[in-house]
């Protein structure tokens, strides 16, 4: 006797990854925590208030816009929280609280939601907001202090030709924005992201290597390790390379494209730091890189299997 077998055939995909937007964003938040905690401990309670203000206002902006436009609420995917946290980490520790709040609203509403929400924005919202604030409030955005004493950032000191203590830069006991000073904390977070498979090392490594090479060739200091490590650890490069440049939405999806993008960012950062008027250049480099992502994807799109030589994709690919 045979039994009636009930066989089911379902449409693909059959294998599913457990990755979801909220899981990835949760991982990014966890990875940013060491830097955030270090920033709060080192810079004091006001830094905590700045982080809190930027996160809460980012969530509020997302909620208000989506309610107002009668769109689906996407607060639970955590992307607004990541934007707010990244923006807060990019603020000087003694900034008046209304500036990060304004920045969060700009990031969420103008840069992200007006272009269609998560996945549609062509620029990293947190960085675009940082540049918006940097242009608007140059004075307040460039006054750094530790324990109420105004200090210059390591990059500014290096530019003046002074020597900086590399161990201090690595640990983060120096001036700068809340989240960028401690390379150690940032690397811990980056290691967590790599371990969880959230980011690949392609963009950060090609970024950092090409930046170092560019500095070696054009800064006029040759292979002066003291200078190169100062440039590497002293500014926003670690935060930018590991956490900002690797943003899924605003970085290329092709592997070769990611390498190219990293190299481009390294060169741009080098140009801004060496020849620009400000000692820092990571934010501008990354948002200019973001703008070029559609072109990078277009020239690095691999051929589908069996179609022969690679052909340039006719239509603009997704940004």
């Amino acid at each position: 006797m045979t039994e009636n077998k009930l066989m089911q055939v379902s449409a693909s995909p059959h294998g599913r990854s457990s990755a979801s937007t909220s899981r990835i964003m949760g991982d990014v938040v966890i990875a940013l925590l060491p830097a955030a905690i270090f920033g709060v401990v080192y810079f004091g309670f006001h830094a905590f208030l700045v982080l809190l203000a930027s996160c809460v206002s980012a969530l509020l902006a997302e909620y208000a816009f989506e309610r107002g436009m009668k769109k689906k609420l996407t607060l639970s995917d955590g992307s607004a929280l990541v934007t707010g946290l990244l923006l807060g980490l990019n603020m000087p520790p003694e900034i008046p609280l209304w500036i990060p709040i304004l920045g969060s609203f700009f990031a969420i509403i103008v840069v992200k939601q007006l272009y269609g929400g998560l996945g549609q924005n062509f620029m990293n919202p947190a960085l675009a907001a940082r540049c918006f604030l940097l242009i608007s409030f140059a004075g307040q955005m460039n006054s750094f202090s530790v324990d109420g004493v105004a200090t210059a950032t390591p990059l500014a000191l290096i530019r003046e030709g002074e020597r900086v203590d590399l161990l201090k830069l690595f640990l983060g006991t120096c001036g700068g924005v809340i989240g960028e000073t401690s390379a150690l904390a940032l690397l811990l977070g980056a290691a967590y992201l790599l371990f969880r498979g959230v980011i690949s090392p392609r963009i950060p490594l090609s970024y950092i290597c090409s930046f170092l090479l560019f500095e070696m060739l054009f800064a006029g200091r040759g292979a002066d390790w003291q200078y190169l490590l100062g440039q590497l650890l002293g500014g926003g490069l670690m935060l930018g390379a590991w956490f900002m440049a690797t943003d899924y939405v605003t970085s290329p999806i092709t592997k070769n494209g990611q390498m190219l993008y990293g190299i481009l960012l390294g060169i741009l950062t080098g140009i801004f730091r060496i020849f620009g008027s400000s000692p820092e250049g990571v934010s501008y480099a990354i948002i200019i890189g973001n703008l070029l992502v559609p072109f990078i994807e277009r020239i690095t799109m691999p051929a589908a299997f069996g179609t022969g030589r690679r052909q340039y994709v006719k239509k603009a690919s997704k940004g």
Binding site: K5, L6, Q8, V9, A11
Partner: peptide, 13 residues
């Protein structure tokens, strides 16, 4: 739901 709707066909010998 499409997996169940389209494809649950019971087959007989």
């Amino acid at each position: 739901g499409c997996g169940n709707l389209l494809c649950s066909v019971s087959r007989e010998e």
